[in-house]
Design a protein around this nucleic acid. Sequence first.
DNA 1: CACTTTTATTCGTTTAACCGATTACTGTGA
DNA 2: TCACAGTAATCGGTTAAACGAATAAAAGTG
Lengths: 304, 304
Amino acid sequence: MNKLPSLKNLSYLLALHQHQNFNRAAQACYVSQSTLSSGIQNLEEQLGCQLIERDHKSFLFTSMGEEIVDLSRNILTQTEELMNHAQSQGNIMEGPLRLGCIPTIGPFLLGPLSRRLHDDFPKLQLQIREDTTAHLMQLLKNGELDALILALPIETQGNQSWVLGKDPFKMVLHPDLAKDVGEPVDYNKLPDQSIFLLEHEHCMTGHAVTACRLGNSRKINPFTASSLHSLVQMAEARTGATFVPQMAIDQGILSNTELVALTPTDGEAYREIGLLFRPTTSRRQTFRKIAETVADLLPISTLS
Amino acid sequence: MNKLPSLKNLSYLLALHQHQNFNRAAQACYVSQSTLSSGIQNLEEQLGCQLIERDHKSFLFTSMGEEIVDLSRNILTQTEELMNHAQSQGNIMEGPLRLGCIPTIGPFLLGPLSRRLHDDFPKLQLQIREDTTAHLMQLLKNGELDALILALPIETQGNQSWVLGKDPFKMVLHPDLAKDVGEPVDYNKLPDQSIFLLEHEHCMTGHAVTACRLGNSRKINPFTASSLHSLVQMAEARTGATFVPQMAIDQGILSNTELVALTPTDGEAYREIGLLFRPTTSRRQTFRKIAETVADLLPISTLS
DNA sequence: CACTTTTATTCGTTTAACCGATTACTGTGA
DNA sequence: TCACAGTAATCGGTTAAACGAATAAAAGTG
């Protein structure tokens, strides 16, 4: 039987990969630089292969080193889940839960969600991170987040996902425009460049354009907004139109405005809301409870 | 930051779970009983929860202990994969590969397969285990096997599977029966109790009955065979009929018999052959190569 | 050429891993 | 009832490993 590498050394390797510097990595691990250095050498010896190419001034991870980092990340993430599981005494709704959410969902869901979770599971320590889909996926992979609430469809990159429900898109218009377009809205009756959208970083732009079959319409204004709130303000200030998800309207994003919300097409114009997590997770039961709670807060729940 | 448990202690816990006895577990780990005992205590202290209930004479795993065992098994399996990966220097077709296979596939596939694998990947050390589907699944879960070659469809129990190809069922008859039944075979023209099948442990029985729409026919003889070879002998000795997969016929199971192979129904009568592995594996690329090699040896390959 | 920044190495100390022996307890069979 | 085998926990001493402080070695910087 071969000797097992120590998790400590694997975590040293991970820290080194993250910081690309022995000193900073050692600090992050609360050990001395010499400890980390020898830990890595130790690991290389145990595994019988070179993980980093050393230069007296600097170093570089070998391709094998990168692969070992990826494998180690999984192992350490699962070990942390094991420790959390043990420390919460098997109560699945206890301890920290690090949840990621995109900015076109977060402000309209997380308030009610955290209230409900706090009522139902008071020992659950919810930690929220709001960021773009791409960045959240990275954090999920690195084990810095446990699960994500996203708008689907997206490329899941090997993660597992549950569809929680539907969130219809509404077309929100300045009252001067609303009287001409009918319902469902006939886009042709809108002036050119009157539709405002979010920046491309937000996946909602793509979802809305697809769901409402808008294509590369000349109706779209080249200026983009960086949040739903500013999007609404642009539509009001510049006599324009835009798409806003139902959940944002339900949370009062249109109060104190004169904007009108109409159905955009006669078809099904909506985005799906899903929960995403690593397939290796040991917390499926916890996520199931979260999924049920979220689905219950959505305009249309489709969780089976 | 919390202190990480040592993999060694986790493996002690696993050994104890397997042997249900401190002495034998310690022997299996090549350490003394006191070492294993204190290792487990150490682990309990680190995790902050009781894993086994001790009685002066014996002990029992707590439910938390069982859960930790399951999580640890995953972690250790992945660590072993990491070590193997490192030791084979990143060459994915190198080192040991422990493959499980059911008895209605193994004798007709593994010969050509191991020959091909040995030619194409001489450093791959193929280890074969032949057993029932249920038992193989258990070994896969425990990390004692890396992948399984099975007949589908089955309940994958959280494992990932690839469909490799189709293996048609042929009806094999004694020549005295063959002249009356036509082709595709009309089962009604067979005498009662003239069809022999395998024992129920073999999933092929169910697959054949389903694929050939045989139901609970009176044509089926209540005696069962324990292997395809004895099944063929029964059909010949007792003037009967049975189902044999194409791959077995291709490998000459009917040579030295007078039996006749006919098409059983006008529909599609076949079983699918699939490769099954843990979703947490790090050896997908290796399995892909194996899958391609196996698919190439099947009567009909459907691997995409 | 001094000075900073970087990783590797050395060395003495502390920690913990480990084994063998022993203890404490239980059930069994004479 | 008592000796005995079998079990897990505990104790003491030895050995190995982990660790940090200090230093070395190399290289870029001003």
